[in-house]
């Protein structure tokens, strides 16, 4: 009991452990598993990432004006929902061109508000 008593007393004169987070940002480690990023030019539309993704956060959907890419024969467009993603990086491991077409950055996932309709259609 006296040890904790003493510990509390010494803590009073120590600098607190608290980091002032919103004021001073935290440096993310380069290996932090953050947002999945995609490069449309490099993609070969093999759809391996879509099949590998456990929650189905990556979707290739047919659209009217498909992105201009010679590999894109079916007229697909890449969709990614960061609010559904579980950041397991299984898609990156499935990708035949990791670090070029699809890679995991160390950026923080976004914060959404009501207007974003994150649970909406896409």
């Amino acid at each position: 009991m006296f040890n904790s008593f003493f510990k509390a007393f010494t803590n009073l004169f120590k600098k607190p452990q608290t980091i002032k987070y919103p004021a001073t940002p935290i440096e993310k480690d380069k290996d932090f598993r953050g947002l999945i990023e995609y490069e449309q030019e490099e993609c070969i539309y093999c759809l391996k990432c879509e099949k590998a993704c456990p929650p189905g956060a990556i979707l290739f959907v047919s659209v009217e004006n498909p992105p201009n890419n010679e590999k894109n024969k079916k007229g697909l467009k890449y969709h990614y929902n960061p609010y559904l993603c579980i950041y397991c990086s299984e898609c990156v491991r499935a990708c035949p061109k990791p670090n070029e077409a699809l890679w995991q950055s160390n950026k923080k996932p976004p914060i959404g508000v009501k207007e974003d309709e994150v649970n909406g259609v896409l």
Partner: peptide
């Protein structure tokens, strides 16, 4: 309460190690 804060404060060291190793604090994958 004080002991809770003390252990939780020290637990952050382990969480940092886990983040270094795997890239996430809780779900390692």
């Amino acid at each position: 309460e004080a002991m809770f804060m003390r252990i939780m404060g020290d637990r952050e060291i382990i969480m940092e190690i886990q983040e270094l190793l795997t890239g996430n604090r809780v779900q390692f994958d």
